[in-house]
Design a protein around this nucleic acid. Structure first.
Lengths: 251, 251
DNA sequence: ATTCCTAAAGTGGTAAGACCATGGACTGAC
DNA sequence: GTCAGTCCATGGTCTTACCACTTTAGGAAT
């Protein structure tokens, strides 16, 4: 029985033991009867209550734990875990693993999410949202020399924009692709030189994005964002080329 | 042990039985040593080979099956299943279940994906892609009177655009949100009247989107697409209002 | 009376063995 | 040659038992 069968299962079909357990939890999780933090009954009681043996119940519980829905602690019990996007990210990673050039491709998804997010943010962002983004922008400017902090601030900036969109769907998807985004970032950094000219243009691009957002101009904000991504691509390409050229000269 | 621990696990830590089994499969799945369609050893042999008891092995196998990575068939054996986006969709559904207004919100994700997809499609779409979309458009026109076929053609049209983008990341995410998209669609249909005036405008909108794509004009294509979504929203709102008005008059 | 330690109880983790249900293959009869 | 029945391999389930970890309550020492 796969996850797909849990979410939509045919109530008519004869339900085996394992199926009964999984539908039991599916109903209570989707209906909200089981909230995050709730403690489940002990395995032995639960097994008896559901009319299945303990191994069967355990298989179901372990499966749910694997999906990140339960937190099973030895000697304490099983607890309902808040829905976590990291599971999504891992599943997406496994799902996209066989695809070629996935690290380049995931950037397209990033652009998609952010461009829509910033449009929404222009309408919905609160003053607090804008102040948060402004604060991150300051951090970004201050950490020009530190690749580590600078990289984090860069990510935080874009994440804050998505958060300001007020769309939990966009937010979850963005979190889901973020592990791949990170890998992509790390891989690209190997080929990218951190020159002052580049970083200063980077700051300018971020500032322009923020200003358009603060002025609540959706079209302008999206254009600035796309320009930012475009420049990033171009810089990476140039630095990649120069990297290869210097490698040719001095092998 | 949760999924998150499978993908990146610390090799130093003392591995318990269940962990050993999961890391065993993780390594072989990510490395490609286990390909889709491969048949696993029988549970009893596998348990002996890995040095764990059968229930422990079964817990791991069932967990992997739940994630859609294995296909366990009674009486036949366990087979490696190709990564499937439907699992993603189900996980996303569970993850977003507690959020309010998620069915409205997921439309934002849809717009995000499609707008970026059509931009890419303007660059990358092959002649075959365009012909496929054109064919679906014909179906859409022919099935104006049939809500069922029409709805399917509508979905197929948008899906074909995402496919034409050539981005597997966008495609997977679009497939992941499609279950929620469907629910949203069904829910909205309850409040929407299928009037000839509406459907004809719908066809016009789709045709305009296609033409911009065929002419390979990204900005124009995205604009047409956004306009299409906007009109859809407006029509739904109007029909919702008129629905409530008629309900007031004739309670 | 307070504090600390210890032991017991409750909980998940694992193991072993048996039996049932299903699918496929082999073999026999027609 | 074809079909049906039987047998075997495999997954599905149950039972029982024991181990490991956590918490807690009760008793002993201060």
């Amino acid at each position: 029985m796969a996850l797909i069968d849990i979410v939509r299962s045919d109530p008519e079909e004869t339900q085996s033991g394992a199926t009964r357990v999984l539908t039991f939890f599916r109903d209570r999780l989707l209906s909200g009867e089981l909230k995050a933090g709730d403690r489940l009954l002990a395995e032995r009681e639960l097994a008896q209550a559901l009319g299945v043996s303990r191994p069967v119940l355990r298989e179901a519980l372990r499966s749910l734990a694997m999906l990140g829905l339960l937190d099973i602690q030895h000697g304490r019990g099983a607890f309902v875990r808040a829905a976590n996007a990291s599971v999504l990210g891992q599943a997406l990673t496994l799902c996209l693993a066989p695809e070629p050039n996935i690290l380049d491709d995931v950037l397209q998804a990033r652009i998609a999410i952010e461009c829509q997010a910033i449009r929404l943010a222009c309408e919905r962002a609160s003053e607090r949202d804008l102040q948060a983004i402004a604060g991150i922008l300051d951090t970004l400017v201050d950490s020009l020399d530190d690749p580590e902090t600078g990289g984090e601030a860069d990510y935080a900036f874009h994440l804050a924009i998505v958060r300001a969109s007020g769309s939990s769907a966009l937010m979850k998807i963005y979190e889901a692709i973020s592990p791949l985004l990170m890998r992509s970032h790390v891989e690209r950094r190997r080929d990218t030189f951190r020159e002052p000219a580049i970083t200063s243009r980077l700051v300018d691009a971020h500032r322009e994005v923020f200003l358009s957002l603060a002025r609540r101009e959706p079209d302008q904000a999206e254009r600035a964002l796309r320009q930012h991504f475009l420049i990033g691509d171009e810089l990476r390409r140039k630095s990649l080329i120069s990297s290869y050229q210097s490698r040719e000269k001095q092998p």
